[in-house]
């Protein structure tokens, strides 16, 4: 799990063009949206693309993203549970 979280942080930084951020700046359990990293609705859609591109997981309803993308940990958990 920790390995996946670490890998995921790198992928998020790349996919969302968070050039000013380093992996250690992202808290495993900190919120990704709003107060946290300040991501917005387009970033959420971009994370859905990331899930499909890198892990083959399709999220059909963007509203599901709210739960999945609460933190890097919840995202990693979702990948672990749904990866084929």
């Amino acid at each position: 799990m920790d390995e996946l979280i670490d890998k995921l942080k790198g992928e998020i930084i790349e996919q969302l063009n968070l050039e000013d951020l380093k992996k250690e700046d992202i808290d495993n359990d900190g919120p990704l949206f709003g107060e946290g990293l300040g991501l917005d609705s387009i970033d959420a859609l971009e994370l859905i693309v990331l899930l499909e591109k890198n892990y083959g997981i399709k999220v059909a309803n963007p509203a599901d993203g709210k739960k999945i993308f609460q933190s890097v940990r919840t995202m990693a958990q979702y990948i672990q549970d749904n990866k084929k």
Binding site: L16, N17, I42, D43, L45, E46, V49, E52, K53
Partner: peptide, 9 residues
């Protein structure tokens, strides 16, 4: 085929 919403906007 991975069109990016962040590009499209």
């Amino acid at each position: 085929y991975f069109p990016s919403p962040a590009v499209f906007v």
